[in-house]
Amino acid sequence: MSNRDPDNLISTNDETFDYLFKIVLIGDCGTGKTCVVQRFRSGTFIERHGNTIGVDFSMKTVLIDDKKVKLQIWDTAGQERFRTITQSYYRSANGVVVVYDITKRSTFLSLQHWVEEVRRYTSSHVLLILVESLREVEKGEAEALCQYLPEVLQVVETSAKENTNIDSVFFYLASELKRRHENRQINANGDEVVRLGASKKLSSCSSCSYKIF
């Protein structure tokens, strides 16, 4: 029988890559995690997608500074009761994207809880990004929250429907992971200190040349 993996069908020589990073998407129900992944992976917005049961996997390779960075993305179910299942997938994650819906306050209030979850199940090397899944609202509050969550690297406002900043989130994460990975290799003795919370604005990170692979 033929190989039906849609990712493998898109690019046949997908086996070659320079870096491989694992990214996990978490956040409350209905905040748009699946839409974010879908938009990034295939460039489409699906109105009629169903809810995620358990975990979904997808993958995309991006080109950063002429290096192939392969991102393995695990999209998790938001409902509390699936936590016992989704927890297994935090393991060895290099990056975590916490998604919340700016128009629903409860999803914002859960952020603290999600970050706790990340603290508990991932290594401290993990990079954390907060994603506001709908834009056009002031983000002052989220930045204020980040003062209390030093792990959070960046807050990005996005819209999967209008395709705003979705790719940037993953490109930023990929280039940041790549940069740190290289630094770690150079300073093999662990001299490099990850300065959490002291990140730059996404717009000012222009040194890396983004290209969709």
């Binding site: 029988m1 033929s2 190989n3 039906r4 993996d5 849609p6 990712d7 493998n8 997908d14 086996e15 975990v55 979904d56 996997f57 997808s58 993958m59 393995q72 695990w74």
Partner: peptide
Amino acid sequence: YRATEIFNTTPDMGHTHKVLCTLP
């Protein structure tokens, strides 16, 4: 039934999970 398909998939957790989730 899908054994061959699974053996032919890139042998890692993600790809295998994906193939198994996607029912023909």
